[in-house]
Design a protein around this nucleic acid. Structure first.
Length: 116
DNA sequence: TGCTTGACATAAT
DNA sequence: CATTATGCCAAGC
């Protein structure tokens, strides 16, 4: 579609995240570009915040450029969420280091290399 | 309608 | 690779 996808790009972002294969992770910037929103990584984060519960979007596979799971800012339930994401990612086959970080150089998803 | 905050990225140090 | 500073855009108030 040639439309600029403006208005609500959330469905588009969710669609991109949904295409992330298991055992692989993508950064917000990566998803942003794939969703057609170059430089709008923050909007991707907002889309995750607006995610419905009955969705098929593995948002836990979406991490920041540091290789860490989204700490959800300074919220109080961040610890539980981080541990939960870590558990899910480990189940996918992702390896975490002692600092709870992922080796992006190893698990970064390449859409051109794996079309699922 | 205008300012502040924000599931971030990139460049520089 | 970690931390600090700056920028982008949208949602919330």
């Amino acid at each position: 579609m040639a439309d600029t996808a403006r208005g609500s790009s959330y469905p588009l972002i969710w669609e991109v995240v949904r295409q992330i294969p298991a055992g692989r992770v993508a950064t917000y910037g990566q998803v942003a570009v794939l969703a057609g929103l170059p430089g709008r990584a923050r909007q991707v984060g907002y889309a995750m915040h607006a995610l419905p519960e009955g969705n098929d979007v593995p948002w836990q596979r979406v991490i920041n450029a540091r290789g860490e799971v989204s700490p959800r800012s300074q919220l109080g339930d961040n610890e539980g969420a981080e541990h939960y994401q870590r558990h899910l990612l480990e189940a996918e086959g992702i390896a975490f280091d002692e600092r709870g970080r992922i080796s992006l150089s190893r698990y970064r998803w390449e859409p051109s290399s794996d079309i699922d």
